[in-house]
Structure formats: C-alpha cells, structure tokens
Amino acid sequence: MMKYLSLGMLASLLWLGCYDTGIKAKLPGRYTRYIQGDYGLAWDTLTIVHLRDHRYHVKRSTGSRSRLDGKLLAKKLEHRNWQTELDLATGVLSGEAFAPWLRWVRDSSKVYLGGLAFQKNN
C-alpha cells in the first residue's frame, strides 16, 4: 500500500514540475495593444519577466499622441513597474497593494488587464 502511495506522490510531483515548466515558458514575454481613432492613437505594452517560483515582474508602458486639427501632437509616455504572483488555479496575477490584477489565459496568447486584452508578440 505504501509503495502505491509513494508512486502516486512521485507521479503528482512530476506532473506539477512539467506543468510549471510550461507556464514559465509560455507566460513571460511582451504583450501589446494598439488603438487608433479620430482623436489620436495609443499603445500599451506589458512586459512580464519570470523572477522565481510563481513570482513575476510586470512593466507597463503606455504611450499616446493626441490629434488636433488633423495633426498629431507630441508623445506622452508613462511607465509603471510592479511584482506579482501567479495563482495556478485561476490564472490571476496579483500581488502588491494597489497593483493591477492580470488574468492570463493559458490556451491563448493573451493577458487581460481589467477588460483590456493584450496580445503576446514573441
């Protein structure tokens, strides 16, 4: 009986190890959104870097150019950095107080920040 229990635990650990490796290979990268309209254009980039275990560093870079009388005005750029932890059960990346929550969809190459969808580039 103890032999079967040990084999079951070993199989579970191996499965989790492979599962973790898949996440570490798929989640990190650069995710982008681009919007263009009558009043200007905007781009939004999330860069996700694996730190250790289920911890990740996220950098959000946001840029925009307003349009006035048909001409684009100067660029406006903003950057924000935070660290987060991945919940394997839900695919939610959360962490520091006041940091945005991200939702990662494993079967696609998308990350969601609120209702905004970011597509993976690399």
Rank of each mutant, 00 (worst) to 15 (best):
residue 1 M to I: 13
residue 1 M to T: 07
residue 2 M to V: 10
residue 2 M to E: 09
residue 3 K to D: 07
residue 3 K to T: 11
residue 4 Y to S: 15
residue 4 Y to H: 14
residue 5 L to Q: 05
residue 5 L to N: 06
residue 9 M to I: 00
residue 10 L to T: 09
residue 11 A to M: 02
residue 11 A to H: 03
residue 12 S to L: 10
residue 12 S to P: 02
residue 12 S to V: 15
residue 13 L to M: 14
residue 13 L to V: 14
residue 13 L to D: 06
residue 14 L to D: 00
residue 15 W to Y: 11
residue 15 W to G: 00
residue 17 G to F: 05
residue 19 Y to N: 13
residue 20 D to H: 15
residue 21 T to G: 11
residue 21 T to Y: 14
residue 21 T to E: 12
residue 22 G to Y: 11
residue 23 I to K: 03
residue 24 K to Q: 07
residue 25 A to H: 09
residue 25 A to P: 00
residue 26 K to A: 08
residue 26 K to C: 09
residue 26 K to D: 13
residue 27 L to V: 11
residue 27 L to W: 01
residue 28 P to H: 06
residue 29 G to D: 04
residue 29 G to E: 09
residue 30 R to S: 12
residue 31 Y to G: 03
residue 32 T to R: 14
residue 34 Y to R: 06
residue 35 I to Q: 09
residue 36 Q to F: 00
residue 36 Q to Y: 05
residue 36 Q to K: 00
residue 38 D to W: 14
residue 38 D to P: 11
residue 40 G to D: 00
residue 40 G to Y: 00
residue 40 G to T: 10
residue 41 L to R: 09
residue 41 L to F: 00
residue 42 A to I: 10
residue 44 D to Y: 02
residue 44 D to M: 08
residue 45 T to R: 13
residue 48 I to Y: 10
residue 48 I to M: 15
residue 48 I to W: 13
residue 50 H to S: 15
residue 50 H to M: 02
residue 50 H to F: 09
residue 50 H to A: 14
residue 51 L to V: 07
residue 51 L to Y: 07
residue 51 L to F: 02
residue 51 L to W: 07
residue 52 R to W: 06
residue 52 R to T: 12
residue 53 D to Y: 05
residue 53 D to F: 06
residue 54 H to W: 14
residue 54 H to Q: 15
residue 56 Y to S: 01
residue 57 H to K: 12
residue 58 V to E: 04
residue 59 K to E: 13
residue 60 R to L: 03
residue 60 R to V: 03
residue 61 S to I: 14
residue 62 T to S: 12
residue 63 G to T: 03
residue 66 S to G: 14
residue 67 R to A: 05
residue 67 R to Y: 04
residue 68 L to R: 13
residue 70 G to C: 02
residue 71 K to Y: 08
residue 73 L to Q: 15
residue 74 A to N: 07
residue 75 K to V: 12
residue 76 K to C: 12
residue 78 E to V: 06
residue 78 E to W: 12
residue 80 R to K: 15
residue 81 N to Y: 07
residue 83 Q to E: 11
residue 84 T to R: 04
residue 84 T to P: 01
residue 87 D to K: 13
residue 88 L to E: 09
residue 89 A to T: 03
residue 90 T to H: 08
residue 90 T to E: 12
residue 91 G to D: 09
residue 92 V to R: 05
residue 95 G to T: 01
residue 95 G to N: 10
residue 96 E to V: 08
residue 97 A to M: 13
residue 98 F to T: 07
residue 98 F to K: 12
residue 98 F to H: 05
residue 99 A to P: 13
residue 99 A to T: 01
residue 101 W to E: 11
residue 102 L to Q: 06
residue 104 W to I: 08
residue 105 V to H: 05
residue 106 R to W: 08
residue 106 R to P: 12
residue 108 S to W: 03
residue 108 S to C: 11
residue 110 K to G: 00
residue 110 K to W: 02
residue 112 Y to K: 04
residue 112 Y to S: 03
residue 112 Y to T: 03
residue 113 L to D: 01
residue 114 G to S: 12
residue 114 G to R: 09
residue 115 G to Q: 07
residue 115 G to S: 08
residue 115 G to W: 06
residue 116 L to D: 12
residue 117 A to N: 04
residue 118 F to E: 00
residue 119 Q to R: 05
residue 119 Q to A: 02
residue 120 K to G: 01
residue 121 N to I: 13
residue 121 N to K: 11
residue 122 N to Y: 06
